[in-house]
Structures are given as C-alpha cells and as structure tokens.
Design a binder for these strands. Structure first.
Lengths: 150, 150
DNA sequence: TATTGTTATACTCTATAACTATA
DNA sequence: TATAGTTATAGAGTATAACAATA
C-alpha cells in the first residue's frame, strides 16, 4: 500500500543530495513548464531562446548562438531555418566575415517574443514560487557560476 | 510592486538573467560531464540514477523510480531491463502489492555503483569548482525547493 | 590550417496511447 | 475505477563526421 502523494524515500538517498540530480530534476520541471507556456506561440524553449538572442541589440552569429545555448551548430541551422521560414528572424551576411550569418529578429519576431516572454515569465514565477526574491537572486548568481564555468 | 500586467523593461530580461536558461545550461554541462565520467562503467546518468535508487536500504518500486527521477514508467522498464540483463539489479515481487516490482541492486551492482559514484563525484567537483563549500550547500538547498516544488 | 555554416546520420531522451494484471 | 508494469510508436534533443566557402 503506497502512501499518498508525498515522497518518503529515506534521507540516506544520496541522489537527493547530489547537485547534478537536483539540477536535472529542476530542469525537467522548467522545460516542461516552459514548453507548455510557449505552445500557444508555436515556440518551444529552444526556439524561444534563439529568438531571444536574435532580438538583442547586436544580432549574434549562428556560432555565437551555438556556443551560448550549448547547441550543436547543426541544430542552430534547423532552428533558424524554422524561425526564418515563419519570418520571425532573418539571416544577414556579416560584413566583417563573409563566412558568418548574423541572425536578427524581424518586427514580427519581436512582437511575438514580447508576448511569449510574458508567458514564460509567468511560468517561471510558478517554478520558483517557493523562493523569496533575495533567495532567487542568490540562486541565479550561484547557478551562473556553474552554467558558465566551462 | 506593480499591480498591472507584466514588466515592460524588455532589455533587463535577457536570457542570461533567466533562471530557466541558467538551469538548462548548467544541466547540459552536468549531463555531459556525468556521462563522460560514467562511460567507463557502461552507465549513463539515467541508468546510474536508477542503480543508485535500487541500492537504497528499501528497494523502490518502478513507480517510485519513475516519480523520483521524473521518467515515464515506460522508460523505467527499459532502464531496469538493461540493468537486470547485466545482473546489476533484480526485480522482486512486492509481497504487499502483486502488481508492483521492487528493484534491488545486486552485490555486483553495488560494487559497480561504488566505483561509478566516485567517478561521478569527481566530475561534480570540477563542475562546481567555482563555489565554496557553503555556497554549494546554499545552492543545493535553494535548488531542492525548485526541484521538488511540483 | 582553422572556422562558419551546412547536410547527413545515428543515437538518446521525451511523451502518449493502449493493453494486462492486479487493487 | 484506479494503479503498476509493459509494449509500441513518434517526435524532440544530442553527438559526430564530412563538406564547401572563407579566413
């Protein structure tokens, strides 16, 4: 007979103290919530992230998107193809390096992004509802050190 | 505190300040490092996690593994099949519920787990090398609130 | 020689539905 | 009716190698 709802694994479960496991579990929740929030906009977490970078003041190259999002360059091709086909971003030749494309969000892309961002931020608020604002700031700072330690 | 709608300061909501993005990026690094460390043992992060749960004092049911690791029950079937085929875990009938299997690590499984765990912890140490011990403890605690908020 | 973007391919992970046997 | 495990399948994500154009 299983008990209701709560997880009553032994506290000797070393997995539960494992930073990597906690990151993986938090990420699974985060991705699921993000994709659900973005579904109405025809976006997913990865395409949203690409669109978000493309909307920055300086449009990134595909290589920069690849590095920052930790996606393989070939994945970026597919993601940009999709967004470009929907006229949310454009590929522009980089005047300083003719090998490179600069990816820039269109006006339609920026409009969609603004709406999508509101939905994403709403979903995020639910995700860290157990954290006070200053706890959240600490978490972001500590996480940043891991996320950009490579 | 604004009572109306969403925060309109778009330029302040960059991807780099986004908790979900940082979790995703940290997770990508963590999974890559974990899988690399586990390759020598014929394990990956997911099979390692299942084996780790199976080595607990009380062997979990497949459903408990599914819930805790946030894996679909059908994925747990495949993972336990693999580990069982290599005689690292056993399925035992649950005497209290004949629908359920209890998954228990064998002696060989526990031996392999101990070696694999050392490798994983080594990889983890590199991952959070930018954190002092007390920072790491804070991070684990804050992350736990997110990871088990669902 | 090295790098950017691209194509191709294979593998892993995720998500869903349906089925069985028990509860 | 509901739950544990299983099978099947499709779609999303990850990893690698090879190539043309350019640096």
């Amino acid at each position: 007979m299983t008990s209701a709802g709560t997880d009553e694994r032994e506290s000797t479960t070393r997995l539960d103290d494992d930073l990597s496991f906690l990151i993986a579990r938090a990420n699974a929740l985060s991705i699921a919530a993000g994709n659900a929030a973005l579904a109405d906009f025809g976006l997913r977490v990865r395409s949203y992230s690409v669109l978000s970078m493309a909307a920055e003041a300086v449009g990134p190259s595909q290589r920069e998107i690849s590095d920052h999002l930790r996606l393989d360059p070939s994945q970026v091709v597919a993601l940009v193809d999709d967004l470009q086909g929907r006229e949310l971003v454009e590929r522009r030749p980089d005047s300083r390096d003719r090998r490179a494309n600069v990816v820039v969000a269109t006006a339609a892309g920026r409009t969609l992004l603004a709406e999508a961002r509101a939905a994403v931020l709403g979903a995020e608020r639910a995700l860290h509802s157990q954290l006070a604002d200053d706890d959240r700031a600490v978490l972001v700072e500590l996480l940043r050190r891991i996320a950009f330690s490579g």
